[in-house]
Simulated scan of single mutants.
Amino acid sequence: MSRSRLPAMLVVLALLAAWEPSAWAEAPRYVGSAVCAGCHPGQYERYRQYSKKAHSSRGVKLMAKGLTPEELASCYGCHTTGYGKPGGFTDFAATPELADAGCEVCHGPGAEHVATSDPAAIKGKLTVADCAPCHDDPRVRSFGYKPLLQAGAH
């Protein structure tokens, strides 16, 4: 190694030595709503029975043929779980467990919570503001969205 590279290598080694192990952890992973049912059966059943989100991929599949790839990607962003994020929905064949807008759309990726049962590993208390990324003003006006937070459907 040349002497000119030595200072740069020392800086890299110092940064690596100071790096927290948690910084090397992989990105949060999605597990799919069916996994949540094991510990949260009541919430899961209400979600499946009363929430339109639980069946949101049906509409996307029906409309997909008439949409451009950009329009379809926009639909996936709200009608599937984790689209465009590491470990999220990619397509109906590869990630069918994430095809609907499931628990993790609102509560965040659940792999760590499932593995540890730590309530702090997932977002527990939701507000209407958590709904805003998908339920913005134009969408609310177009289909009369009412938050299910107050309806008991979770």
Rank of each mutant, 00 (worst) to 15 (best):
C36A: 08
S74E: 10
R48W: 04
G32K: 08
V114M: 12
T90Q: 15
K125M: 11
A23S: 15
S57G: 07
K52I: 09
E45R: 12
T81P: 06
G32L: 09
P133W: 10
A115W: 03
D130E: 03
A132I: 02
W24S: 15
L98R: 05
P28F: 02
P21L: 08
A99L: 06
Y83A: 06
A37K: 12
A115K: 10
Y76W: 14
S57I: 04
P21T: 08
G38R: 10
A101D: 05
G59N: 14
A99K: 04
S56P: 11
L67S: 03
P119Y: 06
C103E: 03
F92A: 10
P69N: 04
E112W: 04
R29D: 07
H113Q: 10
D118V: 11
T90H: 06
P119F: 03
D100T: 07
S33A: 13
A99S: 15
C106D: 02
H107N: 05
S74R: 13
R58P: 01
R46L: 04
G42N: 11
P119I: 07
D118L: 13
K53T: 03
T127L: 06
A111F: 05
A37G: 06
L72S: 00
S51L: 12
G108H: 02
A25Y: 09
E71M: 01
P41C: 12
K125L: 14
R58Q: 14
Q49C: 03
R29C: 05
T95G: 10
S51G: 11
P96C: 15
L62I: 06
T81E: 04
T90S: 11
F92P: 02
L67Q: 07
P69H: 03
K52Y: 10
C106G: 03
Y83I: 00
P119A: 08
K61L: 03
K123C: 08
H79N: 11
D100A: 05
C103V: 11
E45L: 13
M63L: 14
P21H: 08
H107P: 04
I122M: 13
P41N: 11
